[in-house]
C-alpha cells in the first residue's frame, strides 16, 4: 500500500497578478514540439514549457511538491505526456478546481493522485505552504487552513495503490 496521506509543498498555478489560471490545455503543459520524446524521465524538463510565467517550473520544482491548479486543467488533446511530465519531476499529487475529462482519465490510469477541490483557490492556501492531503477523505490542511476536497474515488485509489492501470490488471489476474 502506498501512503494515503501525502505531505508536501504546494504551487498555486496563477498568472503574473496571482489570479487563478483556468483552461490550461495540454499544449500549454507539454507542447507538441516535444512529443518526439519517449523517455518519461526526459519529459520533466518541458513541464509547463508553454505556460507563460511558468517556463522555469522544472528548475524550481522539488520532488514531492504538489500542484494546485484551476478549472478545466488539462483541456484539449489526449496527450499522456501532460501527466507524465509531472511524474518525471516527482510531483506527488495534482489538486484542482476541475479537470478536462481525458486528462483525468490519463492521470487516474497512470496512478497519479488527482484531487478534485472546487473552491481551493479561495481557501487561503498560498504557494509555498506545506499541506497534508488525506486522499481517502479529501481533507487538505496546512498550519492555518483546513479545506475539504472531494475524496478520491475508490477506483482511483485502487489504481494508485497498484501503481498504474496495467499493474492493477496484473493483480486482478492473481
Amino acid at each position: 500500500m502506498k501512503p494515503e496521506i501525502l505531505e508536501g509543498r504546494i504551487w498555486l498555478i496563477t498568472d503574473g497578478e496571482g489570479k487563478r489560471l483556468d483552461d490550461i490545455d495540454t499544449d500549454m503543459i507539454f507542447h507538441n514540439r516535444w512529443l518526439y520524446i519517449t523517455d518519461v524521465k526526459e519529459m520533466g524538463k518541458y513541464a509547463f514549457g508553454n505556460t507563460e510565467g511558468w517556463e522555469d517550473f522544472p528548475e524550481k520544482a522539488k520532488e514531492g511538491d504538489i500542484l494546485v491548479v484551476g478549472r478545466n486543467f488539462g483541456a484539449g488533446s489526449s496527450r499522456q505526456q501532460a501527466v507524465d511530465c509531472f511524474r518525471a519531476l516527482g510531483i506527488q499529487a495534482v489538486v484542482g478546481e476541475s479537470f478536462g475529462a481525458i486528462y483525468k482519465r490519463n492521470a487516474i490510469n497512470s496512478g497519479m493522485p488527482l484531487v478534485e477541490a472546487p473552491g481551493i483557490f479561495e481557501s487561503g492556501l498560498k504557494s509555498g505552504d506545506t499541506v497534508k492531503i488525506n486522499l481517502r477523505t479529501g481533507e487538505i490542511t496546512s498550519r492555518n487552513v483546513g479545506f475539504k476536497a472531494r475524496p478520491m474515488p475508490s477506483v482511483s485509489l485502487d489504481i494508485y495503490h497498484a501503481g498504474d492501470l496495467f499493474a492493477y490488471a496484473e493483480k486482478l489476474k492473481g
Partner: peptide
C-alpha cells in the same frame, strides 16, 4: 476509448467510468 484503456478492458473484462 484509447488503446491503453482498451488493452486493460481486454485483460480485465471491465473498465472504470464516471
Amino acid at each position: 476509448m484509447g488503446d491503453t484503456d482498451i488493452a486493460f478492458a481486454f485483460r480485465a473484462g471491465r473498465t472504470w467510468f464516471e
